[in-house]
Simulated assay, not measured.
Amino acid sequence: MDFSWTENQNELYAKVLALAKEKLNSSAKEPEMAQNLWHLCGELGILGLCVPKRYGGMGLDALTTTRVIEAYGRGCEDMGFVFATLAHLFACTMPILEYGTELLKEAILPQLCSGEWKGANAITEKEAGSDVFALRTKAVRDGKSYVLTGHKIYVTNAPLADVFVVYASTNPTHGYLGITAFIVEKNTPGVIVGKPFSKMGLDSTFASSVYFKDCHVPEGNKLGNEGQGAQVFQSSMQWERACLFAAYVGMMERQLEQTIGYTRSRRQFGRAISKNQAISHRIADMKLRLESARLLLYRACWLFDQGKNPVLDVSMSKLAISEAAIQSSLDAIQIHGGIGFLTEFGIERGLRDAIPSTIFSGTSEMQRELIARELGL
């Protein structure tokens, strides 16, 4: 078993880490600044890591993609922006790559990979959260087009998005086999984007509701065949659960480095607090969580690249990383004491950004359900 990286993989990691630290730590909370940062991510290749070069991507496999994203999450301290760009890649770009027609791919993928366009995934509804295929949004065929009607919530990137991957029921009697995925551009009549949500974390991720009112979508904008939407979504979630959470591994490594540095410089009772066993053992636990999560991540992505069934390993990786990120963020706050609680120092932001990681891309409860199912329980 070889745990080493190739020279090219190491160069990519170092390049993205350095440029993320240098260029991607400006505030992405303002739309104008966010647009500049999206273009920078396009230039770095982050928005098309696993997209073939002919469509403007880098053509990387899942494991190399994960390694680069780890550097991205370590270098960029704005996890809201990191999450927004990676949701764009895995939940919008990859479904188009894997299920779109050649015409759609040629027209849309270069725009998404460059950052000129931003993508969003619209599947969640009020009654379709963890039960994701209990959709009420309908798509009714009308000649050579479909008419979409429905309401989506928690749509990441919706206020900025140029294109949406929308899931709707084309045959309600067939359940999840009656779901179809569509590409819908923002200027399509009948698309109404709601006001951005105010959230406890991931501040730079713009999200809102999206309404579809008698929205006509050309037949050519289908992803895959009619009734194949469940497969399209599951494939995108495998990519997202496998690779996106590498950013939280990067965040935990940055968090650990910052915490170690603080404990070495902070002195109480005549010595550095790192010499106190209560502190050093808490840091040891942070390191253990980080490395355990990292190994699960790498194995899941390796299986993905080998074409083997990765569901069990991807679910374990996602679960381990998201829950480790919360606990290590709590440890970092505790070790920093009073300043860990103050927003001006940014220590507490790690916790606020980590909490939603146990909710999006499938809750921790759903990951445990998937793990149990794969074990035959």
Score class of each variant (00 low, 15 high):
F164K: 01
F164G: 04
V165H: 04
V165R: 04
V165M: 06
V166S: 05
A168H: 04
A168I: 05
S169L: 07
S169C: 07
S169E: 10
T170E: 14
P172Y: 05
P172Q: 02
T173I: 04
T173A: 14
G175D: 09
G178P: 01
T180N: 08
F182V: 09
I183D: 06
V184E: 06
E185L: 14
E185K: 13
E185V: 10
K186I: 12
K186A: 15
T188A: 07
T188P: 01
T188H: 03
G190N: 10
G190I: 09
V191W: 02
V191P: 01
V193C: 09
G194D: 06
K195N: 12
K195Q: 14
K195P: 00
P196L: 05
K199W: 02
M200P: 00
D203I: 07
S204W: 02
S204P: 00
S204A: 13
S204T: 05
T205K: 00
S209R: 03
V210L: 08
V210P: 01
Y211F: 15
Y211C: 12
Y211I: 10
F212K: 02
K213V: 15
K213W: 08
K213C: 13
D214R: 12
D214L: 10
H216G: 00
V217A: 06
V217E: 06
P218C: 06
P218Q: 09
P218L: 09
E219R: 11
E219S: 14
E219C: 12
G220P: 03
G220H: 09
N221F: 11
N221M: 09
K222S: 11
K222M: 15
K222Q: 14
K222L: 15
L223M: 10
G224N: 12
G224W: 08
G224V: 10
N225G: 14
N225L: 15
E226C: 13
E226S: 14
G227I: 09
Q228G: 13
G229R: 02
A230W: 03
A230H: 02
A230M: 11
V232P: 01
Q234R: 10
S235L: 06
